[in-house]
Write a protein that binds this DNA or RNA. Structure first.
Lengths: 108, 108
DNA sequence: GACACGTGCAACCGTTTGGTTGCATACTCT
DNA sequence: AGAGTATGCAACCAAACGGTTGCACGTGTC
């Protein structure tokens, strides 16, 4: 039942929940109001997000606020980094080619 | 059956396939050699990756080479951008606080 | 043309997923 | 203490997922 962060963000509803609590911490009920599902379904999503440490909870009386653990999002960024390097290299190569063409035109 | 890019990268095997063909285009058979599954299973993953335009194919005789569509990866980067802004803002705020503390110490 | 090779697709199967309903628990207010 | 509110958890269900096996189709090679 160990889910990783990539599975966590795979579901559109969960991405929406993340977007919501990124702005401000919210209770399950408040979050559920934004979706066309039951509160329990949202609760399940929150459990998954908590399991892979993407969100934390903070109890205030009988209400539980869920907050986004923004640091965890960096893991995706870290994974993307290797590919960012590739597309930046390709862009650089494209620039070089364009520069070469420009140079050749000037010669005429 | 419409899958988005986030579902595509949710599976560890698919992320491994992406990592493989990021270096160089490969045939399904060559890719499958790197995993402990059947060629058909890999073929299925490739189909999913093709469906959401993360990979493209190039036929060379009876072999089909799969290549990574690196541009598509930028979609994830674009999605991450909003959160990157948040963690950078927080880091900035932290810096400000530290600077303030430093300043106060100097007064003494 | 016959045959091996590389590949995709359909059918099937067990497991996981996302959802629902119903219930138990914990806190608040009167 | 009792009523109402906020929440989590278990049981269940249909659909989707990831895998396998078997087969069909196109492409090279002899």
């Amino acid at each position: 039942m160990k889910r990783d962060i990539f599975q966590a963000i795979a579901d559109p509803t969960r991405r929406a929940i993340i977007a919501l609590i990124a702005i401000q911490a919210m209770t399950p009920n408040a979050i559920a109001e934004n979706f066309h599902t039951t509160r329990q379904a949202v609760s399940k999503h929150l459990r998954i997000l908590t399991e892979c440490e993407l969100v934390t909870t903070e109890q205030k009386g009988r209400e539980i606020y869920y907050l986004l653990e923004i640091e965890k999002m960096k893991e995706i960024d870290k994974w993307l980094e290797q590919y960012r390097q590739i597309w930046e290299t390709r862009f650089k190569q494209l620039e070089d080619v364009l520069a070469k063409i420009k140079k050749q035109k000037r010669k005429k």
